[in-house]
Design a protein around this nucleic acid. Structure first.
Length: 383
DNA sequence: GATACGTGGAA
DNA sequence: TTTCCAAGTAT
């Protein structure tokens, strides 16, 4: 093992006695840990396979990395298997329609990822002969691929020693060096330390090892420092409260918005759907007709909220039957929708939507909030 | 640099 | 129940 060298950290913190820049020992300790404790994941080539010469498929790495943006491993697994089954390579995805991809993505969230995924597949197929660029810069030109994803694909699929910095790495590195700068201002500092830690050999395994460590040992709450292969190198552990890192500003309160949703049933029991605009929240996804969603705080009177949630915005005049309310939490607001149902005898209520048999609703590009609204009026639809 | 952008699971 | 947050990107 390399002898530890002493070097002052930028803020002269205790890191001078710990994992220092240019020291390859932490990376090697982490890689040894990863060889024993790595997670088995559908998109992952194991260290043993990798050593035997199995090359990760850039398409599968890209697909998994996009799905994993702000999304849990458990949520991604089924979607990854569905996508690779439907579209086994980038050309197959390029041959699909955007609506096909949105239907496949429905329920996973952050739907601009699905639209960018399709755009990216089209560009790789048409401008790169079906091969992903083998460089951070080339990858970053593609839609939906930013700082993190370009580095992750470069490291994992192409063995390029790029600094892969995701939320896990931010947590691990901010603890290793006890970085007291608040997030997100600390990002550049964290990137610099990550570059210094990243080894020239096995950079992809190193990146995945850092993420596995963050996900299973160096967790946000109650980290298992006793099991950590880097506990000798951790300034935050030496200080005594590793949970304090990374330092984050308090979150803002989430406002509440109100509105109404309208379930229109044809004589055959089909449900009327329409497509959302191609910009903004849930862009391009399907929906049942619904009102504007109006913000209201706790000072707003019940009478005013009642006006926000009545049948005035309904797309047609009808005998609307109240069907309960649903609450849905988005990232930046909470939505409370009053749901109404009606049966119509004449087919189209104008607009440019379409009718769907209740048994086929699962195949539509319906975001979860819309599934909740439909379920309020039609229980068991999505059971 | 701040904000928009989904969802479901854990504590 | 409420809060946090999970392999971020685009604007």
């Amino acid at each position: 093992m390399t002898k530890k060298r002493l070097q002052a950290s930028p803020d002269n913190s205790p890191t001078m006695f710990l994992a220092v820049s240019g020291d390859d020992a932490p990376a090697q300790k982490l890689l040894a840990w990863y060889d024993r404790h790595h997670r088995i994941l559908p998109w992952r080539v194991t260290p043993v396979e990798h050593k035997q010469g199995v090359r990760p498929d850039p398409y599968r790495i890209w697909l998994s990395e996009v799905m994993l943006q702000q999304t849990t491993v458990e949520a991604v697994k089924a979607y990854f298997l569905k996508f690779t089954s439907l579209w086994p390579n980038v050309q197959a995805l390029a041959d699909a329609t955007e609506d096909d991809v949105l239907r496949g993505w429905a329920g996973l969230g952050y739907y601009s990822r699905a639209r960018n995924l399709k755009k990216c597949a089209d560009m790789v197929a048409s401008q790169h002969k079906g091969q992903f660029p083998a460089s951070v810069e080339g990858l970053k030109q593609l839609p939906g691929i930013g700082d993190y994803t370009s580095a992750a694909i470069a490291a994992i699929a192409f063995d390029i020693p790029a600094a892969v910095v995701d939320g896990n790495v931010e947590r691990v590195v901010s603890r290793l060096f006890a970085i007291k700068t608040m997030m997100p201002q600390a990002k550049s500092e964290i990137r610099k330390f990550t570059e210094q830690l990243t080894p020239q050999t096995r950079p992809g395994d190193f990146a995945q090892a850092m993420m596995d460590l963050g996900a299973t040992i160096c967790t946000p709450k109650k980290p298992a420092c006793i099991l950590c292969p880097l506990n000798d190198n951790c300034a935050a552990l030496l200080e005594g409260e590793p949970e304090l890192y990374p330092v984050k500003a308090p979150k803002k309160a989430r406002p509440v918005r109100y509105g109404a949703a309208f379930i229109i049933l044809s004589p055959q029991g089909d449900v009327y759907l329409r497509k959302r605009p191609d910009k903004g929240l849930l862009a391009g996804m399907s929906e049942v007709p619904n009102s504007e969603w109006i913000a209201a705080d706790e000072a707003t009177s019940p009478e005013h909220i009642a006006r926000l949630t009545n049948t005035d915005p309904a797309p047609i005049a009808a005998n609307w039957q109240p069907s309960g309310t649903i609450t849905h939490i988005f990232t930046h607001f909470e939505l409370r929708l009053s749901v109404y149902k009606t049966d119509v005898s004449t087919m189209p209520p104008s607009n440019n939507g379409w009718w769907v048999a209740q048994d086929n609703l699962e195949k539509e590009a319906l975001p979860t909030v819309m599934k909740k609204a439909i379920s309020a009026a039609l229980p068991d639809t999505f059971k």
